[in-house]
Amino acid sequence: MNIFRLAGDMTHMFSVLVLLLKIHTIKSCAGVSVKTQELYAIVFATRYLDIFTSFVSIYNTFMKLVFLGSSFSIVWYMRYHKAVHRTYDREQDTFRHWFLVLSCLLLALLIHEKFTFLEVLWTFSLYLEAVAILPQLVLLQRTRNIDNLTGQYIFLLGGYRGLYILNWIYRYFTEPHFVHWITWITGLVQTLLYADFFYYYFLSWKNNKKLN
């Protein structure tokens, strides 16, 4: 464990907690894409399949449970909680995300480190996570302005993988033959997808005006 990875995990945890808090307290999911939340639930479900078979540490297992629990409860709130579901913007959240799932699955079957069930699904989860934010970013461009909790959620979510990149650089230089091209490339693509969001988020913060 290094400071970059810990910072990354904390940033990631705060992002899901910010969103869960927003939905739970003000009973609103305005501006939030349920498709991105569903993709993230699939990402965690397919990445943490080994949660019971391979024990890494208490921290690792605890965080896996936090991410699984939060992503599935956010989807549950947005799909089945009456008050929250009413604030869901169905007309605008129209990204065909099942195509993302299918193409990532095909890609994982083609490009992976080892052709085993767990490894292919783990690779699939990396590909899917890289593009999971797309429905949310598309929805963002359609809704005029977004409330700052949703903005903070996206900012933290985009930042966590950027911190992971620093963690991979650190591990590359400190651990012999720590090389994982698939993880690195997907992590880089994922972070780059947030580039223009970060730009506008920074502008709104600098000029102290609403993000739109």
Binding site: R5, D9, H12, D50, S54, V56, N60, M63, K64, F67, E113, K114, L118, E119, W122, Y164, N167, F178, H180, T183
Partner: peptide, 10 residues
């Protein structure tokens, strides 16, 4: 082995 090594991240 490799698998356990890189599956130590979230």
């Amino acid at each position: 082995d490799i698998a356990s090594q890189h599956h130590d991240e979230l």
